[in-house]
Design a protein around this nucleic acid. Sequence first.
DNA 1: ATCTTTTTTGGAACCGGTTCCGAATAAAGT
DNA 2: ACTTTATTCGGAACCGGTTCCAAAAAAGAT
Lengths: 328, 328
Amino acid sequence: MVTIADIAKMAGVAKSTVSRYLNGGSVSEETIRKIEKVVQETGYSPNKFAQSLKAKKTNIIGTIVPRLDSYATSQTLIGIDEQLRDLEYQLIISNTSQSLEREIENIYILAQQKVAGIILLATMVTEKHIKALHEIKVPILLVGQENEEFHSLIHNDYQAAHSLGEYVLAQRHTRIAYLGVTKEDIAVGVKRREGFMSAVADKVDTEVKYFETSFKSEDAIHKTLEIIEQYKPSIIVCATDNIALGALKAAYLSGLQVPKDLSITGFGGYEVTDLIHPSITTVKFFYKEAGNFAAKSIVKMVNKEEIDQMTFSKYEILKRESVDKKNN
Amino acid sequence: MVTIADIAKMAGVAKSTVSRYLNGGSVSEETIRKIEKVVQETGYSPNKFAQSLKAKKTNIIGTIVPRLDSYATSQTLIGIDEQLRDLEYQLIISNTSQSLEREIENIYILAQQKVAGIILLATMVTEKHIKALHEIKVPILLVGQENEEFHSLIHNDYQAAHSLGEYVLAQRHTRIAYLGVTKEDIAVGVKRREGFMSAVADKVDTEVKYFETSFKSEDAIHKTLEIIEQYKPSIIVCATDNIALGALKAAYLSGLQVPKDLSITGFGGYEVTDLIHPSITTVKFFYKEAGNFAAKSIVKMVNKEEIDQMTFSKYEILKRESVDKKNN
DNA sequence: ATCTTTTTTGGAACCGGTTCCGAATAAAGT
DNA sequence: ACTTTATTCGGAACCGGTTCCAAAAAAGAT
């Protein structure tokens, strides 16, 4: 490994002169040429650890993600990655495999690595999270969950679900099942449910029942089989697209035709929802664009610029084959 | 930020004593207690840059991946991540968004960061790749593509496709379309095709035609529409599950029933292939287990242990609803 | 109690880069 | 030609940890 001392010796100058050359300091044209020649011949590049040790900072942004095999996470990371590259920051991805303990641990690990900022894609934000995030003195951006103590970028779960509720009413569905998830996930478990109910509850001649499943499609299959047997809804509104896939499978297993016998909606706008038959009506969140925005925001925070405390990403209702219009 | 010098001062000992305490050197019980107390009170942890600068190595394994939104990549990374965590190595994920230039660049960047080893999930291995991998003097493991100069962990594309070909024959399909991808991808574009053809070519009364598409489902939809119109196969064997999803959509758009009018197979064993209707017959590769194995292997290489030059991961034919048996 | 062996400790050098500042040199001004 | 200003350069200290080795202390043997 070639060091700055080697380069200095080979170019016949001092280490500090090479350093000045590398960092835009005062160096004569002749000396520049001498150093350049040696740098090119050797392929020298500075030792990152030495630089960071001295500078006490890095150009690294850490992200903490709950899982690697989720569409929302992947797309968000792609957006973050693209934008950070443009801004000449390096991205570190820490996968916590949905362990809250690991999330806390990774917060401290990233701080130790002197990341310039942290983007936390959170499923939930506990007191321990908050304590850790305060202790480490690093700019933090939450993505996907809101919290009044930290800057947040969230998908407008409430408003999106409300819009979907309006669409379901406009399609004249009156016997509605809502298949949600645990309240511990504020965004998916609470806000989407509340938003949807705000649109459909208390409508005359409209019955809506809440059911709960996990995030796994296999559990959603079983739950939907129950719902079909016990409640016979004309539509099932699912809190995620993966749950909707499970509901679709259960409909087939029950001998029902979608959307004729049972309509189904999802949430997220995963690509596969347009590839299958029937294509699934869903709410599309622009995860990649959200990732782009998150990257820009965290860099602004690193540079001590002001950003909004809370930002909402866009959504779009994708009206597709899986919902029909009822005649009543 | 508390440094080792602060700890030493507070405990009334020398820096080198604190360092020995931290690294299992010779320290008396009394001195251990003094240091421990101060370390706990301050929450001190060593500066990673200083450690790495001195040690000239890290406990980081870098992975270079072509994309973040692929099932195979996600599962492999999850497997790598789990295993590395157990082995107390940190994982860095570098996403190259399918740019060969970025792959080369990231090889050098990771070397600069003194990663202990690199796992390269490659789509193809060019001369530039080989040059870079040789220059950086870091243990390398290729995953998903074979190359005789570097240790490789590959999915047995040839044998798996051969087995699938045998299954297709056993289901008595005689008018077969194979929908493949570019030959530049040796594993998916060459080996899978060759393996399948080795099973079905030259069979009496069996006609098999090769067609080509990109990895994108949308392109596969269009290509499949053409194939259905021009060749009317009884089965389409697709080089990936995403292509199979496209083929399934095209069958629906053509008014065909699967598997009655047209059978479809995929490759990879993505979860969604069992969620949709009809469930797709496919070859399942155990990506996560492959990731586990890759992590163990790279760590062995880092420790100068011998490993096999080439290792094959397992596969399994998942016989599902999308292929029926012909009566001929 | 004395001698030998083992354990413990601290000082200093080192890892590879950055930065300050005085000295030297060059350029500009009178 | 002399003075003032600007540019360039190199030496040394520093960033926070590790490690070597001589000296001191402790433990074991006679």
